[in-house]
Amino acid sequence: MNVFRLLGDLSHLIAVIILLQKIWHTRSCAGISGKSQVLFALVYTARYLDLVSTYVSLYNTFMKVIFLISSYATIYFIYMKFRATYDRNHDTFRIEFLILPSVLLALLINHQFSFLEVLWTFSIYLESVAILPQLFMVSKTGEAESITSHYLFALGSYRGLYIFNWIYRYWSEQHYDIIAIVAGVVQTVLYCDFFYLYVTKVLKGKKLQLPA
């Protein structure tokens, strides 16, 4: 463990807390893409199946359980409890165009052709594009509530900080995982446009307006 990975995981945890708090407190999931949340649930389910087979550390197990529970809780809020506030008309990204290529790529490019490893690889590829429906929805609605942009900033920062973690681990322990690194860079790059707007607008108290 290193400070970059710890900060990254905390940033991820903060993002999840911001999202759940926003939905619970406002009793509304307006502006939130249910499709992205479905993809995240898929990602964590596929990646954390090793919870039953491998024990890494208490921290690792605890965080995996938190991310699994929170992703399903968010789906429950969006599609059941607060479904009246779900903005279905603006959440129209075709997620099959993200899932299928991730499955194919995971079958073709992986470290080991085993069940858990291919699922892990699928989850890495899918996570790199899982935010697209959410960014697409924000661009369609043309704006995002500031709390939603804080959520996106924390979520984008998590994998961005992981890049520093991978640099540190390569330098300090000659460890690297090219699949995680390439996907992590793609994932972070997808947020760049949003990061720019967040820093130049939201931090100055303005509303986040994405060019539609």
Binding site: D50, N60, Q174
Partner: peptide, 10 residues
């Protein structure tokens, strides 16, 4: 070493 059998990251 490239990759790692045990994925110790989240």
């Amino acid at each position: 070493d490239q990759n790692n059998d045990l994925h110790d990251e989240l």
